[in-house]
Design a protein around this nucleic acid. Sequence first.
DNA 1: ACAATACATCGACCAATGTCAATCTAAGGA
DNA 2: TCCTTAGATTGACATTGGTCGATGTATTGT
Lengths: 122, 122
Amino acid sequence: MTFTQILPLTDISGVSPADACSSPLARTAIAPESADALARSLKALSDPARLRIISIVSAHADQEACVCDLTDQLTLSQPTISHHLKVLVDAGFLTRAKRGTWSYYSLVPGSLGSVAGVLAAV
Amino acid sequence: MTFTQILPLTDISGVSPADACSSPLARTAIAPESADALARSLKALSDPARLRIISIVSAHADQEACVCDLTDQLTLSQPTISHHLKVLVDAGFLTRAKRGTWSYYSLVPGSLGSVAGVLAAV
DNA sequence: ACAATACATCGACCAATGTCAATCTAAGGA
DNA sequence: TCCTTAGATTGACATTGGTCGATGTATTGT
């Protein structure tokens, strides 16, 4: 078997060989597209006002809050709060339900936990 | 007992009364300072390049990677990668160790999981 | 001592983001 | 019908953030 080659210990199938300074791999890294998607989700969450909005919503027994709950507790203008709500809806963390004059925002079940899970696995 | 008052069901001790449109609370929301701190951590993570850096580092068997591992895999200039590394070190997700000519970056154990845990509890 | 290499820092630039005042829209109440 | 209220949208503005070229700083090899 003169063609048999002993691979360096740092080689893992499908992973390109590393530089001299590099150490062995235990697994492959996250795919660029996955990193993009996760970054988009995290970006939607990485604002103090938006985190407080999510927290206020999920603090309600029915996981639903109206905008007045938010304007009461956040020291931000109404348009700014409305902007943050839009960001969270677009990112898939909240849903909007209009009933009469009021808008109610609900937490999308599992959306936060999903991001937390993916993050912990990065 | 003419002084006894029946509190509305929406009242929870220490929580200010809600508007007419509001629903009952199950707990209190996150404190503003905690939201600030969590937002800072998440902001450090909410970039595709930085997520990939963390992933590449933790993909190594010893949870350590040199900068050349990163410049190989990320299509970004060396100063840009250096910038992202600084952000992650400042945020407490990575530590730097210089050995000879090379800089090695390691994952701070538990830092990612901690953020994920706090996030899931928001 | 000198050249080369690895990486950090600096300065500049453009894009993205958070904020608010002003305005618009729709739903209720008089 | 008209006024009021709740909340979304628009436009402008200042700030932050990602990127790179140029430069600085150690460290290694000759």
